[in-house]
């Protein structure tokens, strides 16, 4: 009786252990080479909606001490819980790069992603990349920005949208310009958007939008401006969201 019971217990424990180990033991990658440094190739500082995949993959490169690309080095991505990577770890390709699709967590805010690789001494070399998740309000603000603001406030032109920045006598502030915009209170930003530049003794080239945008729209725009400012604005919520 006892023996049978203990037998069953052992068996079930073994089964449990087996099922557990299968879960945790996802195809382990073995690095065939080791680098000295890990650098960002592209995909940092993107804006994505909370929970969704970033528009572009994050690409990092592993280099040797001379700066040459290393093939076959293991790169692992990590971030706060809620952030997912596809894949979460991979070996660098022939150009020394690893590309991963990143979906940010459910909270709006800034997320820090850590990409790490091992060097020849098996010590971790890390790279930190920042991404920005936009919640509902910031997403709405982003759309309004693209419709009304971006053509003057963003100096960069695309094929679809030629920037008007260079044509303006008084240069508008790009919304990423945290050093300037973080010093303006929400009330000041509301005033300048609603009543135009002269409301704050600034240029009349900034028109009044108060009759075009609703109050909630103006708030959404400010939430967007706060979310993308660099350095971060404190009112953007927690820097480095936890989830």
């Amino acid at each position: 009786m006892n023996r049978l019971a203990s037998g069953i217990t052992l068996l079930s424990a073994a089964l449990l252990a087996a099922s557990c180990s299968r879960k945790s033991d996802s195809v382990a990658l073995k690095p065939t080479a080791f680098g000295a440094a890990i650098v960002e190739s592209s995909g940092g500082k993107q804006f994505g909606q909370t929970g969704t995949s970033l528009p572009q993959p994050v690409v990092v490169q592993v280099n040797d001490p001379q700066g040459g690309a290393v093939t076959g080095a293991l790169v692992e991505f990590a971030a706060a819980p809620g952030v997912t990577f596809d894949p979460a770890s991979a070996l660098t390709d022939s150009s020394g790069q690893v590309s991963t699709n990143v979906a940010l967590g459910g909270m709006a805010g800034r997320y820090q992603i850590t990409a790490s690789t091992l060097d020849k001494a098996r010590k971790k070399v890390e790279l930190k990349i920042e991404e920005i998740a936009l919640g509902y309000q910031q997403t709405l603000g982003r759309r309004l920005n693209e419709q009304y603001c971006d053509r003057c406030h963003n100096a960069e032109s695309t094929a679809e949208r030629v920037s008007n920045y260079d044509n303006l006598e008084v240069k508008p502030h790009p919304f990423t310009e945290g050093d300037t915009l973080n010093k303006l209170s929400d009330a000041d930003l509301t005033a300048i958007i609603t009543y135009g530049g002269p409301a704050l003794n600034k240029s009349a080239l900034m028109p009044a939008w108060g009759n075009t945008l609703k109050k909630a729209d103006v708030q959404a725009l400010i939430a967007y401006i706060r979310a993308v400012s660099d350095p971060p604005s404190r009112s953007a919520g927690p820097v480095y969201a936890k989830n």
């Binding site: 909606q49 969704t52 809620g82 979906a103 967590g105 459910g106 509902y136 309000q137 709405l140 959404a220």
Partner: peptide, 22 residues
């Protein structure tokens, strides 16, 4: 999951909304 939460807006709102690009 947060990434699908805009689906819930679509339960009532049949047209496109400025705040739900997804």
């Amino acid at each position: 999951p947060a990434k699908f939460v805009e689906s819930s807006c679509g339960q009532c709102h049949r047209g496109s909304l400025p705040g739900t690009p997804q």
